[in-house]
Design a protein around this nucleic acid. Sequence first.
DNA 1: TTTGAACCTTCCCATAGTGGTAAGGTCAAG
DNA 2: CTTGACCTTACCACTATGGGAAGGTTCAAA
Lengths: 136, 136
Amino acid sequence: MMRISEAAQHSGLSSKMIRHYEDVGLIQPAARTEAGYRQYSPAQLDQLGFIRHARSLGFSIAQIRDLLQLRDNPRRASREVKQLAQKHLQELDQQMLVLKKMQAMLEDLVARCAGDDSPDCVIIDELSDSGETGNE
Amino acid sequence: MMRISEAAQHSGLSSKMIRHYEDVGLIQPAARTEAGYRQYSPAQLDQLGFIRHARSLGFSIAQIRDLLQLRDNPRRASREVKQLAQKHLQELDQQMLVLKKMQAMLEDLVARCAGDDSPDCVIIDELSDSGETGNE
DNA sequence: TTTGAACCTTCCCATAGTGGTAAGGTCAAG
DNA sequence: CTTGACCTTACCACTATGGGAAGGTTCAAA
């Protein structure tokens, strides 16, 4: 059994976030010592590691909640896991699209701005324009 | 002079956000009618439009604060505007990098998951792994 | 004139994820 | 017994946005 700071180091999460995940019900409340200190078993360390991996792939807390349930269900169908992952991939695609549009527009503006001592600047001009920015 | 809902429609922002931008000091407090209703002048409508355009390019409130100052300064150097935009471009690049890494890892996992009735699933397996996810 | 719809106001709460800090308890070593 | 490093809970902050409640205003229709 490890204390929370050890569990944090081991899992790559912060103590703060481990408590938070417990607060929001992502993980079961940890066992406590007589003094009230949280104690983590090896199985819980695995779970915390799982959570960190999932977070690093951009899964939301809600999605991780589902992933943990699938993980703990020996009768799961990998289809469900794959679907969840594919849905997240679509979200990532969507975010990329948004960023790419911003990038394209901004790169265009930057390319057309002299960037010298003169106050004339297409960036300011086009942002001031009543026209659209290119987003539908 | 327009009321806030008209200013919202005109600028493409919500009334809610216009009040918020006033709260955080992004725009000057609007004039008020005797009854306390906010009133917006054409110049303020321009400013709101500017803010919406800048937001649609992903500029943060803090960055827009700077952009507005440059916009209102007739003795600005376009160099400053360009630098601000370039810094934001770098941030966009950074975000894209993160998303791309997630995307690549997740695509790999998804490709290797059968997605059938069997419980065997590399996605679950690799998230459960103590190893790294590919992020440094 | 009264009433009702459609506005407006402020204030609080929620989202998602993370960090910080403060006030206090615990434990082990010196 | 003190000190330092840990733990606890309970707040507040951030970004940007939305929702809603409780109450005031405006204007038109009946």
